[in-house]
Design a protein around this nucleic acid. Sequence first.
DNA 1: GACAATTGACATTCCATGTTGTCAGAATTA
DNA 2: TAATTCTGACAACATGGAATGTCAATTGTC
Lengths: 204, 204
Amino acid sequence: MSSPETDRAYRGLSADERRKDRRSRLVRAAVKLYGARGYANVGVRAICAEAGLTERYFYEAFENGEALAIASFEGIARVLFDNLETAILPHSAPRARLRAALSAWFGLVAAYPDEARFFLKDLDGVSPALEEVRRAVFHRFVALFGRIVGAEPGGSLLEVGAIGGVLEMAVVWMRGGLRIPVDTVVADAERLCSFAFQPQEVRS
Amino acid sequence: MSSPETDRAYRGLSADERRKDRRSRLVRAAVKLYGARGYANVGVRAICAEAGLTERYFYEAFENGEALAIASFEGIARVLFDNLETAILPHSAPRARLRAALSAWFGLVAAYPDEARFFLKDLDGVSPALEEVRRAVFHRFVALFGRIVGAEPGGSLLEVGAIGGVLEMAVVWMRGGLRIPVDTVVADAERLCSFAFQPQEVRS
DNA sequence: GACAATTGACATTCCATGTTGTCAGAATTA
DNA sequence: TAATTCTGACAACATGGAATGTCAATTGTC
């Protein structure tokens, strides 16, 4: 407990603005380092150094290190879903919506490699809380694609497989240095999804 | 350096036999704990306790903790590939071979949940060495299925996606407590793979 | 300019872990 | 039985990280 009786401006920013700024700097630094070194190899010390802040402000912004990881992951997920929703907006035909969503997905992966690496690879087997967050986001991912192509809700295992495949494709694509043209990757992913997300009665 | 001038039997086992026994006990204990708690939350102390051995024997058997993780993973992979090869042996038709392999895969997942959890989830973002091992095994996995259905070698991204999907299906299937009948899961996976692993000229 | 709030650098505490070392006692052989 | 190897329990050391605390210097307010 410090004694902040008043909260006056500092460098032109209010107390709230400063707090939010520090928080977002921490998140950005965290994602960058997570993506570069892997979550397991990044501690709060390194994150603070990268953000140009000290531990004191870290624990002002987050309960602990895990909370930052969760916030980072959920921030990435939010941006991702926003982008996908925006991307499919102009289209109405299921196939066109699917292609637009996948295009956006792989475009984001290419544009934000650190975020992508963290999002794709780091969150497994670390802690139950992190695992649950990953699970929930993955489920939303499957549901979104189901909605995109107009499949009935519920999310069959086949759809799970398709989305899992799309994620793994991104992993391998990145590891190969994005040398494969994005259109090729999108086309392959589209084939995988369009097959898996068809309505039950047409499937077999 | 101890001074083992001779190596005499102990409890009916030669020195070599005892070493191998200790080593395999360590691997078994490691996989069990990895699967239960996640790799990041398991140290050599806990593994030694689970194996009923002490640290002294750990470092007799392995260079360090990471070496045990690699050995564990590769041991699982070896058993897995052996099982798959055996499963497809009696069949010659691509479709039958594929079904047999997938049946074996999901059967193993169900039969060895600890091994499966470790194999599927734990190895990402921990260390470069572990990551490389995982990558190599995944590649072999894709190649094996390509060979099973008689696709030309090389491993397209679409095939990567299919295998990634199969792995993710196993993850979700396990998390759901294996409540979905294995035949259903195999059938879905089979659809995913049979579609993705077709020869280029037929694909579109 | 005086005073309070705010910041940043750093020390400090606490604890877990990896790794190596010690040693008394059990099992084995002669 | 005596000598010796092997074992298991545990101490010891080093390292690194999480989380809290201290304090002088800086910035804004009056």
